[in-house]
């Protein structure tokens, strides 16, 4: 017994010396999509928590003080930016008393700073245009081109915070890029026959993906961002459907389906419910499978 016990203790001691306990970098992200990208780049060197879930509309997350507790010990906060989280993140950051994650802080990374934006308003900007994002469209993580830029920015920042892992982060970034490139080949092949076609979406959430796919949005169920569709707008969209030959409407699963169903009743378009982010549905479990679900939905929407 004593012999076994002492052997075990020696084994444990050796194990402890051989692989010293390394504290994982505690990364907190605002959305599950960002969390998925951080996991790809960080691997087992990071512990990732998302403040919101893929089934939630990221504009309207509650500023629940319980989330401030998660931010208190964050080694890195990654947010999307472009005012996407302006309704809930700032008070949580202040409440957390973690000064390094304040905007511009050493442990704060805003993904929007790494990507060229689309939908920048030209001309005067005011709220008669609805709840617009004056700094550009923040729904850029669905874009295979831009997600690689975000991943690179995350890898670089992780390497600053955890210099011992710099080589690992570089390797994982390369692997993620290769994975995305391989997936892109398949997606482009699926979408090639449908270049130039258009769909209708609820909000401007698929602008970047449609741009990448060579497709367009013929119209939006919301007459202006954040404004609920009145029946008159749905009726005018019906005319757009006929003139542009739209066959499908894509609606995230956190939106009310009423207006999409009204349009379907008027014109016969298909209503396709899509996840809003990674984790929005069971099969959107990581970034590649999330975009895979979206690409399949796009293909379905134009047939």
């Amino acid at each position: 017994m004593i012999h076994i016990a002492s052997s075990l203790s020696v084994a444990v001691l050796l194990a402890a010396i051989a692989s010293p306990a390394r504290a994982a970098v505690n990364v907190v992200t605002t959305t599950e999509g960002l969390a998925a990208v951080v996991r790809e780049v960080g691997g087992d060197r990071v512990k990732v928590t998302a403040l919101s879930r893929g089934i939630q509309d990221p504009h309207f997350v509650d500023a629940n003080p319980s989330l401030a507790v998660k931010l208190r010990n964050a080694d890195l906060l990654v947010d999307v930016g472009m005012d996407l989280e302006i309704g809930w993140l700032p008070p949580l950051v202040i409440q957390s008393r973690n000064s390094a994650i304040l905007p511009g802080g050493a442990r704060r990374l805003t993904a929007a700073a790494a990507v060229p934006p689309m939908d920048l308003p030209t001309g005067p900007v005011d709220r008669s245009q609805g709840d617009i994002h004056p700094s550009g469209n923040p729904h850029f993580l669905v874009d295979p081109r831009r997600v690689q830029l975000v991943a690179a920015a995350i890898a670089a920042r992780l390497a600053e915070i955890d210099p011992g892992g710099a080589a690992a982060y570089t390797d994982r970034l390369r692997a993620f890029r290769a994975k995305v490139a391989a997936a892109e080949k398949g997606w482009k092949a699926q979408l090639a026959p449908f270049a130039g076609r258009s769909v209708i979406t609820q909000h401007k959430t698929l602008t970047y993906l449609l741009d990448w796919a060579g497709m367009t949005a013929a119209g939006y169920l919301e007459p202006r961002p954040g404004v609920a569709p009145p029946p008159s707008h749905v009726a005018s969209l019906a005319a757009t459907v006929r003139s542009a030959g739209v066959k499908g409407v894509l609606v995230e699963n956190y939106y009310d389906r009423r207006s999409a169903d009204q349009l379907r009743d008027l014109t016969g378009v298909k209503v396709i419910v899509i996840p809003g982010d990674v984790g929005g549905t069971k099969d959107a479990s990581d970034w590649v499978s999330f975009v895979d679900v979206l690409v399949r939905a796009l293909v379905q929407a134009v047939q």
């Binding site: 511009g104 805003t110 700073a113 060229p116 689309m118 030209t122 831009r146 920015a153 670089a156 390497a159």
Partner: peptide
């Protein structure tokens, strides 16, 4: 936006280069 116009080609930073500016 005045000069960049529609989405300009991204300047992809090589891994290991300093991160994009915070602002």
């Amino acid at each position: 936006a005045q000069a960049v116009g529609p989405a300009a080609g991204p300047a992809a930073p090589a891994p290991g280069t300093p991160p994009a500016a915070q602002d």
